[in-house]
Design a protein around this nucleic acid. Structure first.
Lengths: 340, 340
DNA sequence: ATTAACTACGCAAACGATTGTGATTTAAAA
DNA sequence: TTTTAAATCACAATCGTTTGCGTAGTTAAT
């Protein structure tokens, strides 16, 4: 048995030329109806599979798009991948997934791989440690379409699909205020991440709007479950303790809740807690966590659609402004009711 | 600016032949030291990227391996992907990810894509709805190495890496018994899935070992959070109610806990609950859930290693027995202490 | 009957890399 | 000085497709 049937094999079988077979399979009308069906039937019966490699080489185009993800097993990103996959698949493209593991060195390697694979376009979310963008510039220089999602470089003129973190945070904090919270702590992350800055800004804007003074003493650098478990004892034991905690992600919120319950606080009566990101933890904690849904699947879809559009209508110079995904507040049990 | 530098471009620049450039870049000693470094320097300076497509076509081999996943956003599978990616990357292969969405029709399409992409090998976990295996047989017929992970077809002679579900379930239930539970309910899944059957068998074996009679009345077809929430009211309200629940996955266990708490039962005093799979929900519920870790990252690693080994040392006929991943019981708060 | 216009297909050159073989140069051996 | 072998590199085929162009053979128009 031949390993893989080729056009040449089919041509030989019918005593035809390779080009005729090729055209017949693409249903080219310059080939007679009779010959066409004859060839197509034979191809189907013998499970002919076009060699994408050869076709792509010849056509100098590719049906694969590449994606660079900080961490595949992160639920948020895996949902983005699912969204991307849904549209990529629909358009008969193939997805190559690479993972940076939040390290710039690996991220650079990902770019090399994707470029060597001559992908038609790349989707990327930069790693936390990335502080120079030459590798991404190289993608642009090679004129392969590039779209960032969620996390994007500050100093690069490229398309992107980002979440409206600022508004999301604002909405969450405003909601806390409307439920009667007057002293809201912030558990955030390093200013190096744009999303962290934006969420913090949303938090601050909400405070300002309702005339609540910003207090640095209850704003923490705390973005993991573990850190929240460490810090929350101190936070809730202080004089003039916060009556709410707004955390940059649900894992952190869960850590805060864990500690608060063990310290005897009841939630949301004594303390309201709100997370961000709606990982699926938030539904399973007790109480379940009020949070901000970022619609990662939708984000992935939009990013892929934008990329495919750029592939279809190439226009290297032009980049539209970022596509902004609006968030949604999901109210659960860890916050109180709005006071009218 | 040229789109992508090729060997021909470099050759032209130095007035050398393409073959010389090719050999120089692979550090072939038949090319003079001087020419070699000259070429390599130039290539590096101008960011030459070998065209994998062309190389693969010529060499009739591929540096990409494909994976077929039922659902990417499932945490278990995303961890498997991460494990796969880690070894695939280490060996300078590229990963193409396809998703069956638990549908056989899509799964067939995935196989077509992978075969057309002339992957060097494929990793697959079959979808829940797959009931014929011709598409996988086709992979084998084409002599491309194939390794199943976690879920495998019953009637196909292929390599696989599977979790020792039977022993895992046995260990969990034995532990429940040792903590004093005498009437253990089972929340399981359809018999169509091999893993469901195995877990159930482990459950039954543990009961037998300790002389506990199997009772069909407390064995349920219940494998989601929602179903658990529906069913548990009834389960815990019955006469002679169970003093423990062993659930086929953590989501289901979380649903049971949710209801049990609301019915006023305290866990684990009144009711022990044990899950399976150690999704990261289990750490964040209250109480956190005792569960069975399946080591998905490790499973992915092993599957990838097995596949790469088959690629390296092709031996189409021979398939070793399945590689079995042992599980581990993670004791948390939803179960009691062992009674000595 | 001659020319024009189709129809249906084949030829051959690409795409970019790899690799066996052949050719030239140079230096060493006889 | 001639022979030989090693060192360097070029030639050309090849992987499987695609595609512009050319060419038989047929039909229709003049």
């Amino acid at each position: 048995m031949k390993l893989q049937l080729t056009l040449k094999d089919i041509a030989k079988h019918f005593n035809l030329s390779v080009s005729t077979v090729s055209r017949a399979l693409r249903n080219d009308s310059t080939i007679s109806e009779e010959t066409r069906t004859k060839i197509m039937d034979y191809a189907k019966a013998n499970k002919y599979k076009p060699n994408f490699i050869a076709a792509n080489l010849r056509k100098k185009e590719s049906n694969v798009i590449g994606i660079i993800i900080p961490e595949i097993s992160n639920h948020f990103f895996s949902l983005i991948i699912a969204g991307v996959e849904s549209v990529v698949d629909e358009h008969n493209y193939t997805l190559i997934i690479t993972q940076s593991n939040e390290k710039m060195s690996k991220e650079i390697k990902c770019v090399q791989t994707l470029l060597s694979s001559r992908v038609a376009g790349v989707l990327a979310s930069i790693s936390k440690t990335t502080d120079s963008y030459e590798h991404f510039q190289e993608i642009i220089d090679n004129k392969v379409p590039l779209v960032f999602f969620d996390r994007r470089p500050k100093s690069l003129n490229a398309d992107s699909v980002i979440v409206d973190d600022e508004n999301g945070a604002f909405t969450a904090v405003e909601y806390l205020i409307k439920t009667g919270c007057k002293r809201i702590a912030y558990y955030g992350s390093h200013a190096s991440l744009e999303i962290a800055v934006n969420r913090r800004n949303g938090y601050l804007r909400a405070l300002r709007k309702y005339g609540i003074a910003e207090d640095r003493k209850i704003m923490y650098d705390c973005d993991t479950n573990l850190k929240a478990k460490e810090i929350t004892y101190r936070v809730l034991a202080m004089d003039n303790r916060p009556d709410a905690i707004f955390a940059i992600n649900d894992n952190t919120a869960a850590g805060a809740i864990y500690v608060a319950k063990r310290m005897g606080f009841s939630i949301p009566e004594d303390l309201s807690v709100c997370g961000f990101g709606d990982g699926f933890i938030s539904e399973n904690t007790d109480p379940s966590i009020t949070s901000i849904d970022q619609f990662p699947f939708f984000t992935g879809k939009k990013a892929a659609e934008l990329l495919l559009n750029k592939i279809k209508y190439p226009n290297p110079e032009e980049t539209t402004g970022p596509l902004i995904i609006e968030t949604s507040l999901i109210i659960r049990e860890s916050t109180g009711n709005i006071i009218v």
